[in-house]
Computed example of a mutant assay.
Amino acid sequence: METALRVTEALKSFRETRLSGIRAPTEFFDHHRVSRPADLNQATQRISYNTKYFSGNYGLIVAALAVYAVLTNPLLLIAMGFLFGGFAAISKFAPESAEIAGTVITQKSLYITLFVIGIPLLWISSPISTFFWIIGASGVLIFGHACLMEPGIESEYAAVQDAV
């Protein structure tokens, strides 16, 4: 019961802090504000402003790309399911030693077996290349959007508020 309360509190605080910064899709995909920056200085200013302004939307982009990457790599999905499921099953069903056919099986030996099978399976599924694909794809999308999207009128007021 207490764990469920903590989970709901964590979800509530996540929604208040992270999801409150998500801008409307009409604002995020406003094609009237798309233009090529005049120079590198203007591009840098746009990236600086837009990464703060659209940070919630960019977080959703990274999360969507991560879900896509995991779902399109079935071996990685199996390896992660095996490792996470193994940890959950061992901690829930085998907290103490058991004797099977004259052999004592401890929680430590179960974890060692899980690692001996799970780590090579995870290595074969190439999580490092998937991680760098997520970084690269999200970087191109985020910096491309932030560079091409003109800041709105509110950006002028943000500069005045920062000065005060």
Rank of each mutant, 00 (worst) to 15 (best):
E2P: 00
T3W: 14
T3A: 08
A4C: 01
L5E: 13
T8Y: 08
A10S: 08
L11W: 04
K12Q: 13
K12R: 13
S13G: 00
T17Y: 14
R18W: 10
L19A: 08
S20N: 14
R23P: 04
P25N: 11
T26K: 12
T26Q: 11
F28L: 01
D30M: 04
H32I: 00
R33I: 04
V34K: 02
R36V: 13
A38Q: 12
D39H: 10
D39E: 05
L40Y: 07
N41W: 10
N41G: 14
Q42A: 13
T44C: 03
Q45L: 10
I47H: 01
Y49N: 01
N50V: 00
T51D: 03
K52Y: 10
S55K: 08
S55Q: 14
G59S: 12
L60E: 06
I61A: 15
V62P: 01
L65G: 03
A66E: 01
P74M: 01
L75I: 07
L75G: 02
L75Q: 06
L76H: 08
I78S: 05
I78R: 08
I78P: 03
A79D: 06
F82R: 07
F82M: 07
G85D: 06
G85L: 07
G85F: 04
G86I: 10
A88G: 00
A88R: 13
A89L: 13
I90Y: 10
I90W: 08
P95H: 05
E96Y: 03
E96F: 07
A98L: 12
I100T: 09
G102Y: 03
T106R: 14
T106F: 09
T106C: 09
Q107T: 14
Q107C: 02
S109C: 03
L110P: 06
Y111A: 05
I112C: 02
I112L: 15
T113M: 14
V116Y: 04
I119E: 06
I119Y: 01
I119S: 01
P120T: 07
P120R: 09
L121G: 11
L121Y: 02
L122E: 05
I124P: 04
I124E: 13
S125Q: 05
S126Q: 11
T130C: 03
F132D: 07
A137G: 02
G139R: 00
V140C: 04
L141A: 15
F143S: 08
G144C: 03
G144N: 07
H145C: 04
A146W: 05
C147W: 03
C147M: 12
M149T: 15
E150D: 14
E150N: 13
P151G: 07
G152C: 07
G152K: 07
I153Q: 10
I153C: 00
Y157L: 11
Y157M: 09
A159L: 15
A163I: 12
V164D: 04
